[in-house]
Write a protein that binds this DNA or RNA. Sequence first.
DNA 1: ACCCAGGCGTCAG
DNA 2: CTGACGCCTGGG
Length: 324
Amino acid sequence: MKYKFKINKDEFKGPINLPLTIDSGQTGQPPWLKKGRYFQELIMVEDQPCLIGIRCSSDDVESSLVIEVESPQNLELDKVKYLVKEIFGLNYDLNRLYKFLEDDPYLKPTIDFCKGLRLFKAHDPFECLISSITSANNSIIRWNRSIRSMREKWGYKYDFSTGNYYTFPHPDKILSVPEKDLEEMELCGGEKDLNECVNNLIACGVGYRSRYIRNAAWIVKNEMELDDFFNMDYEEAFNRLLQIPGVGPKVADCILLYGFGRMEAFPVDVWIKRIISKLYFDGKNVPVKKIRSFGMDEFGEYAGYVQLYLFHYARKSGLMKSLK
DNA sequence: ACCCAGGCGTCAG
DNA sequence: CTGACGCCTGGG
C-alpha cells in the first residue's frame, strides 16, 4: 500500500529546516538518505515495516511537510504521523526556544544561523545506544557507515518498490555475531579465507569499540530495560548508562537527549567545550565536568537545544577558526 | 604520487 | 593526569 499525506504548517510551532535537522550530526541515528526529493527511512510502526519519505513542500523554513508511506499492510496514518512528529521534534515550540535564546547575547546569533534546526530523535533506542557508543572518538561519516553496515549485515531486510531496506539488528543478533575475522573463521571451521570474513563487528569499521558494542547488547538483553529511560530521574538514568563500558558522560547525555528526548541533557564534546569556554569563561580552560553542570544549570529545560544550536554554530560559523 | 600528524571520547594506568 | 585506541582527513 502507498499513502501520502501532509503535515500542515499549523500542526506544529515554529520553522523546520529538514536537511539541516537530518544532516547536523546528531548521534541518535544515521541521517535519512535522500531519494529524489524525499529523505527516506524504514521505520517499524507497531511491528509493521513502513518506508517513510519526507520532504518540505517548499524551500522555505516555514513550509509544511509532505510524507509518503509504503507498507505491505494497511496502516493507520495517525500513528505514522505521530511518529514522524516525534522523530523530527515537531511537537516542540521552536518560537518559544527563540525567545529564550534572544535574551542571551551569546546565544542570540545562533537563531538565524540555525533557523529551523530541530532535535532529530532516534526511532530505535537500541540503535541509538549503539550508534552513540560508536560515535565516541570517531568522525560523523565513519560512525554513520558503521551503523549502516550493521543494518545491512544483520538487520531484517524488507523489499519496497524503491529497493531493499534494513532494520537495526536486535541485541540477540548482535550477540550472535563474531567480534573479529579470526573468530569468524573459527566459527565456520576454516572454510573461508581471512579476507572473506566480513560478517563480524570489526569489519563494520568500529575498531576497538567492538567489545563495547557486544557488551552493551548483552546488558540490554539481560539486565537493562531501555524504555525505563524515558521517565526515570535524569541523574539516575545518566548514572546507569555510565555503567555500560564505552559509555562516558558525553555519550550518556547524547543517548538521553537523542534517544529519549530528555531536553535537560547537555552533552559536552570538544566543540561545546571550546565555545562555552570562549563565550562564558573568557577563554579559560574549564574542565568538561564544569561545562556540563554550567550548561544544565544555566539553560535548564533548554539545555539540549542550546547544545544542538551551539554545536552547529561552533562548527560552521567560522567563529571558532580564531581559536585553535 | 606519498606520508604522517591531528582529531575524536573513554578507559586503564 | 596521560597515553592508547582505529581510522579518516588534510596538509606538506
